[in-house]
Simulated assay, not measured.
Amino acid sequence: MTLDDNPRGVQAIAISSAFSGVALAVILMRLYTRLFIVHCAGVEDYFVTFAMMCSMGLTVTIAIQAMCGMGQHFAELKSDNMQHSLEAFYASLLVYNLSLGLIKTSILLQYRRVFTTRRFQVVCWLVLTAVVIHTTWSVLGSILACLPVRAFWTKETPAKCIDQFSMWFTNAGINITTDFIIILLPIPVIKSLNLAKRQKLALMGIFAVGGL
Rank of each mutant, 00 (worst) to 15 (best):
M1N: 06
T2M: 04
L3E: 09
D5I: 00
N6L: 05
N6C: 01
N6W: 02
P7I: 05
V10R: 05
A12C: 11
A14D: 12
S20F: 07
G21N: 14
M29Y: 07
L31I: 09
L31A: 04
L31P: 03
Y32R: 13
V43K: 14
V48W: 03
V48G: 00
A51N: 00
C54K: 01
C54L: 09
V60W: 04
I62P: 01
A63W: 03
I64A: 03
M67I: 06
G69S: 07
G71N: 05
M82R: 01
H84T: 06
E87S: 03
Y90Q: 03
A91C: 12
S92Q: 09
L94A: 10
Y96T: 00
N97K: 02
T105C: 02
I107P: 03
L109M: 15
F120W: 09
F120H: 12
V123T: 15
W125K: 02
L126P: 02
T129H: 15
A130K: 11
T135S: 07
T136Y: 06
L140W: 13
G141Y: 12
T157L: 12
K160A: 08
W168G: 01
I174S: 12
I174P: 14
T177K: 10
T178K: 08
F180D: 01
L185R: 13
L185C: 14
K191N: 05
N194S: 15
N194Q: 15
Q199N: 14
L201K: 06
A202M: 14
A202W: 04
A208Q: 04
V209I: 03
V209Q: 00
